[in-house]
Nucleic acid binder design. Structure first.
Lengths: 330, 330
DNA sequence: GTGAAAGCGCTAACAC
DNA sequence: GTGTTAGCGCTTTCAC
């Protein structure tokens, strides 16, 4: 049961006060060069590290950042977590992963807890959370970065810019003669509706097409829902020849069902996903998708958080460019 | 900037002392039913939650559990993280994810930090860490659970029992007439060598085969290394007709290279992975693999940690049964 | 440029 | 069955 080395131990060894040790560490007040050297030597000799609990209690701020996502097991979010933790480690911050399982109550509870515990920051991809759930937080002083398709209240936002990529996807699909597009979207009660659907719908007319409500299947972001959605679309009397999916997990489900039904992809139906999750290039046919780079999202979120910790108070939105990735499914 | 509600506020409203509030929360001493009710009402009314920083400072134990893994973006570890956080949430514990990128110094640094900060526990999948790096920790009082193929020093361990599954894999492979097995293993300096290789090698004679050193390719646990390893094995003069991979990421790399080389899987070469990562059933041919259930590992780790927090001091090892999953690659 | 000391909110003796 | 209170280790104000 080794004893913990405290700042008092360091101060004693260096022959200074704990205040000086603290200031050497934080740099918040000038310290004479020789004093600094002595203190640093003492720190090294004793292997001292600050007690973050004591620091948090004193400052009212922890070194934790909550990453609140619908499903960390989804490769997109797993990659987001990996990069975020890497970026934040440099700032001395830790990432606490929180799975909401796409449940609004979980989202609210986790958010509230992170605020209560005075986390250094929160990075959240809302799924069913309402803007009003976030409004109250604007006043708490806990920096919140939302990763969502649209700006979301008065908080920092990382949002995709998928217009060009979606247009490219439509070009590709029409170039191979498709005329009847459809979409497998997320649930109807998802936060902010489905901006990926809205974008597709708004661009379709430029290609002489439209995306009527009847050609939108809905479900959770699961493989099963993707399969069910695909089956639904295939049984429609106005059967589509190009199916867009709100994410790659749904697209893989659609692929499952296509094989089961004997529908040739991309022969009979072109299939386009979203995200470019790690498995997108592994399935056969390889999935054509609109890549939303998790690494860039994580880096942007880390930057926004850093800005807040440095004192910025006005909300910012960073747009991350999505990229059309043509493979063999469309 | 809302004010934080403290225990003193609750005590005042309930007309009791902070000690009583504390005991209501912890249950560490008897409280009269009516007192308890009053306190609980006050807690609910004020929306009080304990300040974990203060609690940690006082008790010397935080509510954080470090999950230290080579790569959270690997679907196996992502699933481990998801389930672990779910299991620990019930105990009021949070999961801090730490990526080591398979680097021993990172592993050591992260481990040391978690100990220094008096984390409630550590769950680690060592990759290059040496047993001696862990030895010192046995004395610190921080519960460590190691998820590794072999028991690892005097700490709690979650280890796979893959003997039956590996035997089944060998049966399958020999049933289709294969005689020359090979393996794409991890790096030679990995923690504990490569127990999956050792197991395969020890079972091979039962099937009249052997696994000579020349038929073992080595590399990091990446897709690229899998491809390189496969190429190496294919160029061997004693060309194998069955290749086992230490994990599914390597196997997918092997699949890439097989396609590139025009080697038919499973026609010319049978391929068997390990883990059953989420993408194993998505690649074509679908990957035959030895499933090591991340969910069960996470649950076992959570149980072991719980045991430690409840006061157990003797190390325990839980064996999780691996399962042979026959798909089309072998 | 440095030190003394208050106090963050909680837990757990100790006292009754 | 309940209350009083010291003190965990740090940061920061105030004083010099």
């Amino acid at each position: 049961m080794q004893e913990r080395v405290t700042m008092a131990d360091v101060a004693r060894l260096a022959g200074v006060s704990t205040a000086t040790v603290s200031y050497v560490l934080s740099g918040k007040r000038a310290v004479a060069p020789e004093t600094r050297t002595t203190v640093e030597a003492a720190i090294a000799e004793l292997g001292f590290t600050v007690n973050t609990a004591a620091r948090s209690l004193r400052t009212g701020r922890s070194s934790l950042v909550a990453l609140i996502v619908p499903d960390i097991a989804n490769p997109f979010f797993a990659q987001l977590a990996a990069t975020l933790q890497e970026e934040l480690r440099a700032l001395g911050l830790h990432v606490v992963v929180c799975n909401t399982r796409a449940d609004r109550e979980e989202e609210r509870a986790l958010l509230a807890e992170a605020v209560q515990q005075r986390f250094a920051g929160i990075v959240i991809t809302p799924f069913r959370l309402l803007p009003k759930d976030l409004e109250a937080l604007t006043l708490t002083g806990t920096p919140v970065t939302v990763s969502a398709d649209v700006p979301f209240g008065a908080v920092d936002t990382v949002a995709p810019d998928a217009r060009a990529a979606t247009r490219q996807a439509l070009e590709r699909v029409t170039a191979s003669g498709r005329r009847r597009i459809a979409m497998i979207a997320g649930p109807h009660d998802a936060t902010g509706g489905d901006p990926r659907l809205d974008l597709l719908r708004s661009l379709a007319p430029q290609f002489g097409m439209s995306l009527p409500r009847q050609l939108v299947a809905r479900g959770e972001h699961t493989r099963e829902a993707g399969a069910a959605g695909f089956a639904e679309l295939m049984s429609h009397r106005y059967r589509p020849d190009a199916v867009f999916c709100a994410n790659d997990v749904l697209a893989v489900g659609a692929l499952d069902k296509a094989q089961e039904l004997g529908v040739d992809i991309p022969g009979e139906v072109a299939l386009v996903g979203h995200d470019d999750a790690s498995f997108a290039s592994l399935v056969r046919p390889r999935l054509t998708t609109i890549r939303y780079p998790a690494e860039d999202v994580a880096r942007a979120a880390a930057q926004l958080l850093k800005g807040r910790l440095d004192g910025r108070t006005v909300p910012r939105t960073v747009r991350v460019k999505a990229e059309f990735v043509a493979r063999s499914s469309a």
